[in-house]
């Protein structure tokens, strides 16, 4: 598996980072290097092994349904570039 320069531009767009115009060739090479490296895992025989997404075998911790948090509007809005009457105010974004 490998990525093209177009793929890299697309990934940048999806991640909302500036298109790395001047480094596109270098980045494509680096990303393909990582992919090649991961590809090597394909050599491992995983016949009969359940796919897994974690090496932790403990169960998912559950919490009881109780209100224990929130009511900290000031903290929530503290770092907002702009806020008004308790709302975050962001550039117009309407569909």
């Amino acid at each position: 598996m490998s990525v093209t320069q177009d793929d890299v531009r697309r990934i940048a767009r999806l991640a909302r980072i500036a298109e790395p115009t001047d480094r596109i060739e270098q980045l494509t090479g680096e990303l393909n290097g990582i992919l090649d490296w991961v590809e090597q895992l394909g050599e491992v025989d995983v016949e009969g092994v359940e796919p897994m997404t974690t090496a932790v075998s403990t169960p998912l911790p559950l919490r009881p349904d109780a209100v224990t948090d929130g009511e900290i509007t000031q903290d929530i809005l503290k770092n907002a570039p702009r806020s008004e009457e308790g709302f975050f105010v962001v550039p117009k974004s309407v569909e």
Binding site: G70, I72, T73
Partner: peptide, 19 residues
């Protein structure tokens, strides 16, 4: 998160740092 789900509260009040 442990923030309340109650409807109609003041804006950004039922919000935890997780939310």
């Amino acid at each position: 998160s442990g923030a309340s789900t109650e409807f109609g509260a003041a804006p950004n009040s039922h919000v935890s740092l997780v939310d």
